[in-house]
Amino acid sequence: MSTKPELVKLIDTTLCTACRGCQVACKQWNEMPGLRTKQTGTYQNPPDLQWNTWTLIRFQEYLDENKKIHWLFRKDGCMHCTDAACVKVCPSGALHYTPLKTVGLDRNKCIGCKECVAACPFHIPRYNASTDKVYKCDLCYTRLTEGLPPACVKSCPTGALTIGEKNKMIKKAYARVKQLGGDANVYGDKFVDGTHVIYVLQYKPEVYDELPVKPSVPLSVVIWKDLLKPLSLLGAGGVVAGSFVHYMLHGPKAPPPEGTNEAGKTEGGE
C-alpha cells in the first residue's frame, strides 16, 4: 500500500490581485448560486462567507507606519485543520478527515445542529436555514483524487494559490517570507496541529481583518470532547457494568412496598 500524500494549499497574499477568479471558480465547480447583494462601499462581496460562498476575498485598506496606503487581499475559507474543532464536535460524522487529511463535509449526514459553526476558530462553516445544512470548502476532494487541483488553485492567474506535498509547500512558504522580509510571515502551520491551508502574509496576523491571531480549538470543545466525553463513556460503561454485576449478585430488585424509603442510585457522567 502506498503512503497517502498529505497536501497543503498555500495562499500567498502578496501575489493576489483579488481578481475573484477563485471565488467564482469555486461556485462554478460546486454548482453554488450567486445571490443578490448590495454595494456597501467596498469591493468585498458577498460581505462574508455564506452557505453559497465557500471562499471569499477580503479587501482591506491599510496604512502602514509611514502612512503609506496598502490594499490587502486575503482569500478566506476553510483552513482544513489537522486538529479540527468542527470534526470534533460533529455528532453525525458529516464532518470528517479524508484520506488526504483534508476536512470533508458529507452533507447527506449533516443534521444542521450548527455545533461546528460555533466551534470553528476561523468562523468558517455557514448554515442554510432552507436546507438545514452547513456548507464549507472541502478542498475539492473529488478533484484531488483525480489528480486535479482544486478549482480555486487552477483558476489563479498569478500563482498566489498553489498546492502540493505538505513539507514542500511549507518550505516554499518560508522561502517566500524570507524573500519578502519585513514583517512577512507564514500563518497556519503552527496552529491546531497545523492547517492544510497556509498563508504567506505581508504583515503580522493582527493587521488582517477576521484573522484570529492565535486560533485554537475552543477550550469548551476540548473539555467536552477530549476529557468529559471519554469520561462520560467510561462512566456510562461503568453504569452498565455495575448494573450487570448487581443483577448477577442480587437478582432483579423489586420495588419496595408503598411508603418505604429507598435510596436511589446516582448516575455518573452524562
Partner: peptide, 24 residues
Amino acid sequence: INIEGDADHPINEGALCAKGSGFF
C-alpha cells in the same frame, strides 16, 4: 455541464479570472 481553464494553453495555463471562471 462544466467550463474551466485549458491547462494546455500557453497564455493562461488553466487559470481564469472571475469572468472566465464564470463562463458557464
